[in-house]
Structures are given as C-alpha cells and as structure tokens.
Amino acid sequence: MADRALIAVVDDDESVRESLPDLLREFGFAARTFASAEEFLASGYAGEARCLILDVALPGMSGRDLQHELRRRQQTVPIIFITAHGDEALRPRMLEQGAVECLFKPFNDTALLGAIQAALQDK
C-alpha cells in the first residue's frame, strides 16, 4: 500500500469527498479528502500528495488561492482543478497558471484518470 500514489481531494461538497476516494482506490491510488484549503494545508499532506484534485470555488481560501500558497511555500504538487461553474474561459486560465487540467463537474472517470496520469508524469 505504501507504493500507491497519494491523491488529495479538496472539495467543500461532501458528496464529492465521499465518492471520489472510492473511484481513486479503484484506479489503484491512495486517497485523502479535505473539506477546505485550510484543512489541507494544516494536515501536512501537501508534501506527500503526488496529485491534488482541487475545487476552484471553496469557502474561505479558494482553490486558486491554495495553488498560489503552495507555490509560495515551494511545495510543488500537480493540480487538477474541478468546478461546477461551466465558464469555458476558466479552463485556459487555469492551465496557463500551471494546472494539469481543469474538469467541469460532472466529469467522467476516463477524463479524471487521464488527468491524473498526466499529473503523475509531470511530477
């Protein structure tokens, strides 16, 4: 189990935090979930996570704020943004700012797995 890549999920939506870990485990990854950016930062898992699945719109510190804070701390973890807001202009901006992918909810399993595989290749 120790050799399975840890994927961290930060989303304020409880249904996402409950369903994504099961899917990630089916893909062969270890998973940890967090309800907020602040909870993730306080957990100490930022240095262990091989990939971060991060909601754009979070209460308090947003997903983009967390991305900037991780950079400030020089903690490089590939980020896959997820969002329920279907603004097509958002995706190119997120990619320009260093995200591996930006998926619109609901996304399919294949798209998520492809994004994770790309993230793990980048790291």
Rank of each mutant, 00 (worst) to 15 (best):
F81H: 03
Q74T: 11
D55F: 02
G47Y: 06
A49P: 03
L58C: 14
R71F: 05
I80V: 15
T83F: 01
L52V: 06
P92K: 04
A49Y: 04
G86L: 14
Q75G: 03
L95P: 01
E96M: 04
L103Y: 03
L52E: 06
G86Q: 15
A84I: 09
E48Q: 14
A49W: 03
Y45L: 13
E69L: 08
A99Y: 00
T76R: 13
S62G: 13
A99H: 00
R73Y: 07
R64I: 12
F81Q: 09
G47H: 08
E88A: 13
A84C: 12
G98M: 02
L52T: 02
Q67D: 11
L90E: 10
A46S: 15
L95F: 00
D87K: 09
P59L: 11
R73I: 05
F81A: 07
Q75R: 09
C102N: 03
E48V: 09
G63A: 10
G60C: 13
H85M: 15
R72G: 09
D65G: 11
D87Q: 09
A84L: 06
L54N: 06
D65E: 15
G60H: 15
E96N: 09
L52H: 02
A49I: 05
E96P: 00
E96C: 01
R72P: 01
G86D: 15
D55S: 11
L52M: 08
M94K: 01
V77L: 10
E96Y: 02
Q74I: 04
L58G: 12
G86V: 11
L52S: 06
A49E: 05
E101G: 04
Q67N: 05
D55Y: 05
M94R: 06
L95M: 03
Q75V: 14
D87A: 12
L66W: 07
L58H: 11
I79Y: 00
R71W: 11
L66C: 14
V100Y: 01
A99P: 00
R50A: 15
Q67H: 14
A89P: 02
L54E: 09
I79C: 00
A46H: 10
V100P: 01
M94L: 12
G60I: 13
R50E: 12
M94T: 05
M61I: 14
E101S: 12
Q75W: 05
I79P: 00
R71A: 13
C102P: 02
C51K: 03
T83C: 07
R73V: 07
F104N: 10
E48P: 06
E96S: 13
M94W: 00
L54S: 11
T76Y: 12
V56I: 12
L95Y: 01
G44W: 08
R72W: 05
Y45A: 15
S62K: 07
I82Y: 01
D65H: 11
P92W: 02
R71Y: 10
P78H: 06
R72T: 14
S62T: 15
R93L: 10
D87M: 04
L103T: 10
L58D: 12
G60D: 07
V77K: 03
I80F: 01
V100A: 01
A57I: 11
L70W: 05
D87L: 08
R93C: 03
F104K: 07
R91G: 03
D65F: 04
D55R: 13
T83L: 02
